[in-house]
Amino acid sequence: MTQHQTLPNQTETAYHYQVVRRAIDLIDQAEAPLSLEQIAAQMGMSVAHFQRLFSRWVGISPKRYQQYLTLGHAKTLLRDRFTTLEASHAVGLSGSGRLHDLFVRWESMSPGEFARGGEGLTIYWGWFESPFGPAVVMGTEKGICGMGFAAEMGEDAALQDLLSRWPKAEFVEDPMMLRPWVLQAFGAGDGQLNTAPLFLIGAPFQIKVWEALLSIPSGHVTTYSEIAQAIGNPRAVRAVGTAVGRNPISWLIPCHRALRKSGGLGGYHWGLPMKRAMLAYEAVHAEN
């Protein structure tokens, strides 16, 4: 097993995410809301221990967080925190907007470079402990190009998933090269307004969709149809959904903020429990 790079406070928060992940399963399986005592008992913890761990990760009580994790929360987000991407583009947020309390700059490869399957690229990679469990991060000298999460699918599958995106690239395991960017990505940097560069490797249509995703503020959501409108192709909702699902830089390009117009969560490449946890985590911190 490849050793994971730990970031400040991230080993502890990754463990707390596993606690939250188990709590999500219990909440999903319950026919009615569970009390704090019921959740703690089913997880084999004392009430005090569970409340302390849970609150330290998310910043609020398990009872309140349970409200964010319910399936109806997606509809609440659409009603109260819906982002119109056309407005975001109009005020110049795309490509330079505020994201996770830092400014992200990005560039993309040319269509010809993409068509060559990463040929000629050197991609560095490493495992890191993140707030959402083990994360595999990849990047070129220009910036982060891949980020995946292993809590649901396992580490081998997550790594192979990203490796397969660019079959002709040369891959070099070098987490220390990526560490400064990853510190920024998960909010563990030095507190200064630095940039976490992204390098988007995809087809032109995909990159337009990912650019639109970058316009969605933290704590807000939008819909697949809204993204299609924003990129000037309103009938391409299904193609937009496919491009969202192929986003290689999860969390930083926030595909978890794209929902169905009906209020359904839609899919999520790294597992729906991960998507629900990310949305709830962001909604909590947006209000605090």
Results as ranks from 00 to 15, higher is better:
S96R: 11
H269A: 15
V209M: 05
W57K: 01
H89L: 15
P131G: 03
Q229C: 13
K261I: 09
D28G: 06
Y17T: 00
I144L: 15
E155V: 08
F50C: 08
A40M: 06
P167R: 07
F128Q: 05
T76L: 14
V172G: 10
G241Y: 06
D190Q: 10
Y15D: 14
A230Y: 05
V137E: 03
A212P: 07
L53K: 09
K142I: 08
R21V: 00
L102I: 15
M1A: 14
R235L: 13
V240P: 00
K261A: 12
I24L: 12
E113C: 02
A32S: 14
E37S: 14
I249N: 00
Y224E: 10
Q38L: 06
K63L: 13
G118S: 07
E211P: 05
V104M: 06
L121C: 00
P131Q: 02
E129S: 12
L162F: 05
M177T: 08
G266Y: 01
E107C: 11
I144G: 02
A228H: 04
W125V: 03
R116C: 10
P273Q: 13
H4T: 07
S110H: 09
A196R: 03
A87F: 08
V136S: 01
T83Y: 05
A74W: 03
A40I: 04
V47N: 12
E226I: 00
Q51Y: 11
A135L: 10
T6S: 15
H4I: 01
G146N: 04
N288Q: 15
F50S: 05
R105G: 10
D28I: 10
V244N: 01
D28E: 14
A280E: 08
R21L: 14
P8M: 04
R260S: 09
G264C: 02
D25F: 11
A74Y: 06
S164D: 14
A243F: 05
L272Y: 04
A30E: 08
V47Y: 07
E86V: 10
M109I: 13
L252C: 06
T140D: 00
P204F: 06
E119Q: 15
D28W: 15
Q229H: 11
F149K: 00
F50E: 07
D156M: 06
Q51T: 15
Q10G: 02
W270F: 13
V172Q: 13
R257Y: 02
W127F: 10
A87H: 13
S164F: 12
R276L: 01
G202A: 11
T84E: 15
I253P: 03
M109T: 04
W270Y: 12
L178S: 03
V20I: 09
H285M: 03
Q38C: 00
G133N: 03
